[in-house]
Simulated assay, not measured.
Amino acid sequence: MDDKKNEDLKEEIEEKEETVDNCDCCSDEDCKEKVKAESEETENNVETEENKFEKLTEELFKVKNENSKLNNEMNALKDRLVRLNAEYENFRKRTAKEKEAIYTDACADVLKEMFGVLDNLERAVAVEGSVEDLKQGVDMTVRQFHGAFEKLGVEEIDASGEFDPNFHQAVMHVQDESFGKNSIVEVFQKGYKKADKVLRFTIVKVAN
C-alpha cells in the first residue's frame, strides 16, 4: 500500500477525533459516538489495507525466491547440457578413432601373413627353370597360403555333402540318378569362412 495514502487516512482519523473532542455545538452523546464509530471504521480500513499490503509483500517475496530458484535450476541444466554435449562429441571422436585403429590392426594382421606368400610368387616368376620346378614353387606357395589361413582362423567350406544355401551357391543343376537329392557334384570355386561368418560362398553344381 502507498505510504502517502496511509498518512492521509491517519490524518483523517486524527481530524475526526479532534473534531469530537472540540465539538461544542451540541452535547448529544450520539453525535460523538457516531464520529468515533466513523473514526474506528476508518482506522480498521487502514489496518485492513496494511494487512493486504503485508500479504502482497510476502507473496511477492515468495515469487521472487521461486523465480530465483528456477533460474538457478535452469542455469544448472544448461551447464549440464553443455557438458553432456562436449562429452558425447569427445566419445564420438574417440570411438571413430578406435574403430579406425581396430580396422587398421585387422588389416595389418592379414597382410603380414600375405607378404611371405607374395615374396614366393615373385621368386617363382623370376626364377628360370623347368615346368616341374615352377610347379614345385607354386605348390609351396599354396601350402604357405593355407598356413596363413590357418593362423588367421580361415577355413575352407566343406562341399562334399549336400547343398546348403547357407554356405553354397548353386550356378548349375543336373539330373543324375547316380547322385542323391541336392547332392553337390562339382565345385567351380572354393568357399571360405571364419568362425560362423562366410567370407566367400562355394560355387557349385547340384544334382537332382
Results as ranks from 00 to 15, higher is better:
32 K>D: 14
83 R>P: 01
140 M>E: 14
119 D>V: 10
118 L>A: 10
161 G>V: 02
148 A>C: 05
92 R>M: 03
135 K>D: 11
16 K>A: 11
109 D>Q: 11
159 A>K: 04
186 E>H: 10
191 G>A: 03
185 V>M: 07
180 G>P: 06
68 S>Q: 11
157 I>M: 02
123 R>S: 13
9 L>G: 01
6 N>W: 04
111 L>G: 00
109 D>H: 07
79 D>R: 06
33 E>R: 09
17 E>P: 00
70 L>W: 03
27 S>P: 05
127 V>I: 14
91 F>A: 12
178 S>R: 15
37 A>W: 01
39 S>W: 03
65 N>W: 03
206 V>Q: 03
204 V>C: 04
160 S>H: 01
172 M>D: 09
122 E>D: 14
87 E>T: 04
102 I>C: 04
172 M>P: 00
16 K>D: 02
174 V>S: 06
50 E>N: 10
105 D>W: 02
206 V>M: 02
34 K>W: 12
184 I>R: 01
135 K>S: 14
83 R>V: 08
93 K>V: 11
135 K>H: 08
92 R>C: 00
56 L>V: 08
158 D>W: 01
48 T>V: 06
90 N>Y: 06
172 M>H: 14
144 Q>Y: 01
193 K>G: 05
156 E>Y: 00
176 D>T: 06
27 S>N: 15
34 K>L: 13
116 G>F: 05
